[in-house]
Structure formats: C-alpha cells, structure tokens
Design a protein around this nucleic acid. Structure first.
Length: 305
DNA sequence: AAGACGAAAGTGGTTGA
DNA sequence: TCAACAACTTTCGTCTT
C-alpha cells in the first residue's frame, strides 16, 4: 500500500467523502482510500530509498529546547547554609531537604509533561492519518503515558514508542491495522514498531487478544463495497477454516482477503484478486494461495460465472 | 485486454542448535 | 550467532474470460 499505488487512480475532488464510521476519506467513484495527507501535518518529506530516509531522518522533528527547563528554574543549593553562609538550624535544614525533594520531583514531572505533550501531537497526527476512532487514541495515549512513567521512552524516539502504543491499542481494541500501515506514517520502520510493541507488552504486562482474521473482514469488505451477507459469509468461512487448523501461522490479512474473495464470488459480487489484495496489504499470490487452501479444505464450490 | 493461475527465485523473520 | 525453515513477495509465462 504505497503512495504510488494510490496515486495512479486519481480521484476527482468532489467525489471524496468522509466516512465517519471508519474515519477514512474515500472516493465515491473508485472506493479508493485517500485518507492520507488530508489532515497530514507530519513531515513534509517522503523517503523512497533507505539511503534517502537515513539522510532525511537526521533532520529531526520540530526543534525542541535541549535545556529541559530552559534555564529558568532556580536550583536549591545542596549545602545546608543560608545566604550568609551560616549553618542552618535543624528545623530549617529539614525544610530545605523537603524543598529539594520537591523540586526534583517537580522537575521530573515537567519533563514527563513535556514528553507527553510532544507525544500527544505525534499520536494525534498518526492516528488521524490512520483514521482511528477516539477509543483507540485514548487507549494509545494511556499506554504511552504508562510507558513514559516507566521510563521506557528513554533511549528511544518518542515517535517510535508512540507508534508502538498505537499499534498496541489497535490490537487491544480489535481495530485491525497492520504494522506496515502504522509504520508508513512514521520515521520508524515496521521492525522498530514491532520491537517497541513487544517491549510494551512485556514491560507493561499488557495482553492482547490474538488477531483474528475476521477483524479485517469488516474493514476490507466495507471499503470494497460488498454486501453485508457477503461479509457474514466471509466470517463464517474463516470460522470454519480455523477449526480445521489451516489458518495457523498464516497472515490474518491474507486469510481475510481470500475469505472475502470467496464470499463475494458466491454472492455474485465478483471482485478481482488484485483489488482485494491491495486493500488487505498482501499480494495477489497470497490471496490465491489462501483461496486455494480454503476452497479445498472446506470443499467450497465456486459457481462458474 | 484484463484477470486468474502457478512456478520459481528472492526476502525478512522466527526458531532451535 | 548461525543455519534451517515457513510464510510471503516478486516476477514472469500461460491459460481463461
């Protein structure tokens, strides 16, 4: 699902509608998803080769103050002396101790706040590009907050942890998005997002339901414009396939694509493999392979024509 | 001409020694 | 850390609609 594949079917502006249900901009004519760039406030560049990406990512995001408190905060002296250099009396010493402690805490707090503020911007941007519902954004931000508080962001880019949080939230909320889709709006690649995701699961002890191919069915089916009964049939196919065990270890998106393909055929709503494959983020070949396995294993008859 | 099919070689990730 | 491995992709030739 690259920009190239999208842009070779130009959509007339007036045919573009916003689908609130899925939070995506869709072309009424071609069904093409054009959600990206509509609200894109992200990096204005695109990298097409790894080298280019490498170079460009060095540019960095918006400048932020490297001095965490901009030099404005007063440091409380660690010596127990007053302004005249006299030793403080015990009562005052305790007071000074409390002040220091408080200040350190406050500083940590503001650093977390600043981190969060920036992270929430990123989160909003990525989530908007992906057209994610508010519930997922909320979940993602709460995951991110916990990650910051646990110090998991240190040594990693805010953006990559945000991306991982979003992916985790999607998994938890059963909103089917692939790693690739999320990584596409990030400087991080799929690998890095995946690593972050595993880290979050481990460190925050989050558990997620295993991705079910059926989660993809509604989304792919809706964009494809197949009927509800076809989607239902696709879900049933997947259900049965699961019990036979042939789905184990297979890409759920590919399985969903094949199931929809079959269901559409049986409902007389023929779609091309290419179309479905593109929406599912897999190749035609994968759709074909799953298709073959499914009809063979489940003994489904495909009506000719 | 477009879509479907399948073979063959290549890629990135996981697993087990 | 390395090699074997399964799943998936890319590419391409052939057949079908």
């Amino acid at each position: 699902m690259t920009d190239e594949t999208r842009s070779n079917t130009p959509c007339p502006q007036d045919k573009v509608v916003y689908d609130f249900e899925r939070g995506e901009y869709i072309c009424e004519e071609t069904g093409e998803i054009i959600e990206d760039r509509v609200v894109d406030q992200g990096p204005e560049w695109r990298a097409f080769t790894p080298e280019e990406k490498e170079k460009r990512s060095r540019v960095g995001g918006p400048l932020n103050n490297t001095i965490h408190d901009r030099g404005l905060s007063t440091l409380i002296d660690w010596r127990d002396r007053d302004a005249m250099g006299r030793t403080l009396e015990p009562r005052k010493r305790l007071e000074a101790l409390r002040w220091r402690k408080w200040q350190i805490r406050a500083r940590i707090q503001t650093s977390i706040d600043r981190n969060l503020a920036q992270a929430m911007n990123e989160l909003e941007r990525i989530a908007n590009n992906l057209g994610l519902p508010k519930s997922v954004k909320d979940e993602a931000s709460s995951i991110y907050r916990r990650a910051v508080e646990k110090g998991l962001v240190r040594g990693r880019s805010i953006e990559s942890v945000v991306a991982a949080s979003i992916y985790t939230a999607c998994r938890r909320m059963k909103v089917a998005r692939t790693l690739d889709e999320i990584a596409a709006y990030t400087k991080a690649n799929r690998k890095e997002v995946a690593r972050g995701y595993r880290l979050l699961l481990k460190e925050l002890q989050i558990d997620v339901p295993v991705t079910d191919a059926r989660d993809y069915v509604t989304r792919i089916g809706a964009v494809l414009g197949v009927s509800g009964s076809a989607m239902k049939m696709a879900a049933e196919i997947l259900e049965k396939a699961k019990s036979t065990g042939i789905t184990a270890g297979k890409d759920p998106a590919g399985l969903a694509a094949a199931a929809i393909y079959i269901a559409a055929l049986q409902n007389g709503e023929r779609r091309t493999q290419k179309e479905i494959a593109q929406l599912a983020g897999v190749t035609e070949v994968t759709v074909r392979n799953r298709y073959k396995e499914l009809i063979q294993e489940l003994r489904i008859d495909i009506p000719q024509q």
